[in-house]
Structures are given as C-alpha cells and as structure tokens.
C-alpha cells in the first residue's frame, strides 16, 4: 500500500476490454502509459497541460484528460481509447463513420479526443442541439476544421445511435 511510497508500481488496467498488466513508473501519465507502454498511439498529446483535449480517453465511461492522470491512478479501472471505438468486427462507430462522411477530420490529430468526448456526450445527451454539441467539445481544440463539420457529423451520429432514420 502506501507507507514508504513507491517510484514504480505494477498495475492492471482494463484497456478497450482487455486487462493490461505492466510496471509503471509513478510519474508516468496515463497518456504516456497508453502510448509508450501499451503502444496505443491513437491517443495524442497536443499540450500536456489539460487544455487541448487531444488526449481525452474514457475512464470508467467518463471522458478525461489522460495527460492529467497518472497511470497508477488508472490501476483497476476501465479505459477506452480511440482504438476501442470500432466494433469487434472492425465496423466503425457511428461517430467515426459520420466524421468521415462530413469531413470532420483533416490532419486527424485532435480527432481521437473529440471522438471519445462525443461518445460520452451522446450517451448523456442522445438528441443534442448544435449549441449543446459545441459546448460539449469546447474543451477540444481543432485547428483544421473550424468545427462546423464536426458538429454536423455529431448530429448525424446521434440520429444513427438513436436509431431514427437511416444514415447514408
């Protein structure tokens, strides 16, 4: 436990449904653990100070900045990254498909953080207005798209997730 404190610790984190055990230096952030230790490089680092949102992952279903968590804090928790969004058969999550259809990504660097943020948001708010979507992604900076295409993609994905109507 805690008495002497530790510089490194053996942890077990369930990432995208699989238990991953590894030795983690305690100063390693969750983002670096995912990227370097587990080689899940889809989670990106845009600022490492909790502003840009590129590193957002789901921890126990909630969107969080993985640069602002230590890997040891994820011990025993469930983490979902961009690599875990598609179905096991490889078919894209409705948000992923809608992003492609609406040109919701250009360079693709901020995209993983936007997608994880929106996965959580659409669970909380399945039928959002454009303004609610903008508020939900206000902690994710995209320098390429100007956001309109992302908002449009999210509206379409929400419709698909609710099961209303067909998507193209």
């Amino acid at each position: 436990m805690s008495d002497g404190g530790c510089a490194s610790r053996s942890i077990a984190v369930t990432v995208n449904g699989s238990v991953c055990r590894a030795e983690a230096p305690v100063r390693l952030t969750l983002s670096d653990f995912l990227r370097q230790t587990l080689h899940l490089t889809g989670t990106h680092l845009g600022c490492e100070h909790g502003v840009c949102g590129a590193c957002t992952v789901l921890v126990d279903g909630r969107a969080m900045r993985s640069c602002l968590m230590l890997a040891v804090q994820a011990d025993g928790h469930q983490v979902t990254t961009i690599e875990g969004l598609a179905a096991p058969d490889g078919s894209l999550h409705p948000l992923q498909a809608a992003f492609c259809r609406h040109h919701g990504l250009q360079c693709g660097f901020c995209t993983p953080g936007l997608l994880t943020t929106l996965v959580e948001f659409l669970k909380d708010c399945p039928d959002p207005t454009a303004a609610e979507i903008r508020e939900a992604i206000s902690g994710n900076i995209c320098r390429c798209t100007g956001y309109d295409s992302i908002v449009a993609a999210t509206i379409e994905a929400a419709r698909a997730l609710r099961g209303d109507g067909t998507t193209p």
Binding site: M1, S2, D3, G4, G5, C6, A7, R9, V26, R27, T29, D32, E48, H49, L70, V72, Q73
Partner: peptide, 25 residues
C-alpha cells in the same frame, strides 16, 4: 513536458492520509 520524479502514496482512509501528511516532507 513530463512530471519530475516523486514517490507516490495512495491512502485508503482520511486517517491514513493525515498520518502521511504529518510524516512526509
């Protein structure tokens, strides 16, 4: 931009946390 080295403690109770605070510089 990586954190500096430190030792990590994760107490499970308030008493434990207070004891650590008293002991650690």
């Amino acid at each position: 931009m990586k954190p500096p080295a430190f030792l990590y403690h994760d107490p499970r109770s308030i008493d434990e946390a207070v004891a650590l605070l008293a002991r650690l510089d």
